[in-house]
Design a protein around this nucleic acid. Structure first.
Lengths: 197, 197, 197, 197
DNA sequence: CATGAATGAGGCTTCATTCAT
DNA sequence: GATGAATGAAGCCTCATTCAT
C-alpha cells in the first residue's frame, strides 16, 4: 500500500474530496508545518490511516491542492475576461477579478504562496503554467496592436507581480479587497504600462 | 528560562555574530522549518546550549535576521539613489539596485519572504517600515511635480510588487539578474506609470 | 472474524495457491517483517481482503509455507538417497543433494530459517520432524553395522549442523553451490565421523 | 543532531553503556522487531530522545551489539584455548567452551543469529571475521602437522556449522548445555575429522 | 560564558486486520 | 468468493528547549 490508490467506488471518491477540503482549511488556517495529518483526518471524519490510501504524504496532498488552485484560477480568469473585447480592458478587469478571487479563496491562495517554501517544484509548476497563459494572451494582443509591443514574458511578470503583491497584502493580511484608490492606481499603471504609444 | 543576554564582552559579541551568520546560511539554504538549532550551532562552532544565551527561541533569531535585512535594504537603497537628482530616475534605478541586492543577499531575502508564513508580525514589520519609507519619498516627489499625483501608498505597493516578484523569480529561483529586456520592460512600466501627464 | 475456509471450488484452490506462491516470493525476497500482506495480494492478483478468506493471519501463511518446505525436503531427500545401498554413502550424497535443493529453493529455505525468530514453534516443528527422520535412519544404519554406534540424535544434530551452515553460507548468501573442495572437506568429515572403526 | 555523538563525559559514556545493556536484554528477549526503542530507553532509565544521541537508529545499536559480541567471542575463545598445546585438543575444547559461552550470553547470541535477517551485512561482518580467525589457526596447525591437510576454510565452515547448530539447538532453545553424549559425539566428529591419517 | 547531556512532546507513516457490498 | 475501503494502534525519529557543571 505504498502508492496511493485512485478511488474506484463513489464512496472512495467522496472520501478523497473530503480530505482535500479538510486539508485546504487546515493548511490555510494553520500553515503547512503547523497543520497535522491527524487534524486533517479529524476534519474529514475518517481515521488517520485513511489519509494514506489517497495521498502518499503530506507534501502529496499539498501538490494536489496547488494543482486544483491552478485549474480554478485559470478557469476563473478565462471565464471572467473572455467576454471583454478589448485586451487592455481585459487586463485591468483581470486584476480586479483576481483580487476578488484571492479574497474568496484565501486559504488556497495562502497555500499556493507557502508551497514555495516547502517544495519549490510545486510552486514553480503553478506559476509557470500561469505565466505561460498570460504571456500567450499578451502576445496575441500585441499582434492586433491592442497593447504595446514588448517582451510578453516581461510584461507578464510585471502584471503578475502587481497582482501577487496586492493579493498578499490585502487577501492574505486583511482578508478584504484593497481600497478603491489602490485598485485605481494599480489599474492606471497597467493602462499606461501596456497602452501602445 | 533566563532571557537572552545582550553580550557585554567582545567574545560574547563575536559569538552572537557567528550565530547570526550561521543562521542566515542555514535558514537561507534549508528554510526555517528544515533548519535546526543544532545545525546552526555546529556551523557557528559552539555548543547547542550557547544558542539560548543569545536568543530566546528559533523565532527570535529569525526576527533578528529580518530586522538586519530591513536595515541593510533601507540603507543600501538610500545610498544608491540619493545621488540621483530626478525622482523618477531614482525609482527606476532603485528597482535595478534592489534586484542586485536581492541576488547578492539571496539567503536573507528568502528568509524575509518566508518569515511571513512563520510569524506574520515579523514580516509585516519589515514591509510596513519599507512601504512607509517608499510612500514618504513618493509623496515628496509628487509635491515637486516630479511624479504623477496619486495615492502614494498605492504607488508604493505597485512598485514593491514589481520588485518583489522579480526578486522572487530571479534572485530566489535563478540566482541571477533578470535578462535586460525584462528589466527594461519593468522600468518602462515604472516610467509610464509614474510620469506626470 | 471468520476462520479461513478450506477452498471447495477449483477457483478457490487456485487463489490459495497463488497466494502461497506470492508469499513465498515476497517473504523470500524481503523477509517476513518487511513483507506486507498488501504486496502479497498484489503479486497474487487479488484484493487485500481475499487473503483472509484463506489464511487467518500473516503467521498462518508462514506456517503453511514452512510445512510445505518440510514435505518437499523430506520427500526429496528420501527419493534421492533410497536407491543408494550403502548408508554412509547415502549420508554423503544426502549432504550434496540437500545443498542443491537449498540453492534451488532459496526463498523457501530462507523462510524456514527466519521462521525461528518469528514463531519458534513453527521452526521447531520443522526441524524436529526432520531430525526424527534422520535419527531413525541413522539408528537403522547402526543396527546393520554400516555406521559407528553412537547416540543417533547427536549424530543427526552434527550432520544437520554441517548442512545447515553450508546452506546458509552458500545457498542464502552466495546463491550457488559451495566450491568442490569445501564439499569434499565436508564429506570427509561425515565419512570419518560416521565410519565404524 | 542527525549523527550520533561519541560521548565526551563519563556520564555520557555511562548512558551509552546502559543503553547497550538494555538493548541486549530487550532484543534478546523479544527479538528485534518486537523490541521497541521506548522499551529500551525505559530499561535504561532515560528518555526516548536520549537514545538518538548515541545511536542513529534501531539498526545502528544492533550493529554495535553484534560487534561487541564479536569482540567478546574472539577474546574468550582465544583466552580459553591458548594454554592448550595440542591444536586438535584446542578445537575440541573450543567447541565446548563456545557452547558454554553461548549459554551464558544467550541474548547476545540470539541477536547475532537474528541479525542476518535484518541486515545481512552486519551478520556477515561478524561471521567473516570469525571464520578468518578460525582458518588462520587451522592453517598453522596444518603446517605443524597437528591436523589433516585440507582446505582450511572448508574445515572452518564445518566446525562452525557444528557449533552454530548445537548453539542454536541448546543455548537458544533449551537454555542449557547439550547432554554429554551429544557433546562427545560432536567432539568425536571433530577428532576424526581433523586428525591426520 | 560555554558546554554537552538530557528531555519529552509530537508528528508522520505503516500495516495487519475487519467489514459492507 | 471476491472486492476495496476503512480502521487505529503502534513505532521510529526529530528537535526546540532546559539544566547541571
Amino acid at each position: 500500500m505504498a502508492k496511493p490508490t485512485t478511488p474506484v467506488t463513489a464512496r472512495g471518491e467522496q472520501t478523497r474530496q473530503n480530505l482535500l477540503a479538510a486539508a485546504e482549511q487546515e493548511f490555510g488556517e494553520k500553515g503547512f508545518h503547523t497543520a497535522s495529518i491527524s487534524s486533517i483526518t479529524q476534519r474529514a471524519g475518517v481515521a488517520q490511516g485513511t489519509f494514506y490510501i489517497y495521498f502518499a504524504s503530506k507534501e502529496d496532498i499539498l501538490r494536489a491542492l496547488v494543482r486544483q488552485m491552478g485549474r480554478k484560477v485559470r478557469h476563473s480568469l478565462t471565464e471572467a475576461t473572455e467576454a471583454i473585447p478589448n485586451r487592455l480592458e481585459q487586463e485591468k478587469h483581470g486584476l480586479e477579478h483576481f483580487l476578488k478571487f484571492a479574497v474568496e479563496h484565501k486559504n488556497l491562495y495562502r497555500i499556493v504562496l507557502e508551497s514555495q517554501f516547502i517544495d519549490e517544484s510545486i510552486h514553480r509548476e503553478y506559476f509557470e503554467t500561469l505565466v505561460e497563459m498570460y504571456a500567450a494572451r499578451l502576445k496575441k494582443a500585441q499582434e492586433s496592436d491592442q497593447i504595446r509591443k514588448e517582451d510578453p514574458f516581461g510584461q507578464a511578470w510585471v502584471l503578475m507581480g502587481i497582482s501577487y503583491y496586492l493579493g498578499l497584502r490585502y487577501a492574505m493580511w486583511e482578508h478584504r479587497m484593497p481600497p478603491d484608490e489602490v485598485v485605481e492606481t494599480a489599474k492606471g499603471f497597467i493602462e499606461r504600462g501596456l497602452r501602445p504609444d
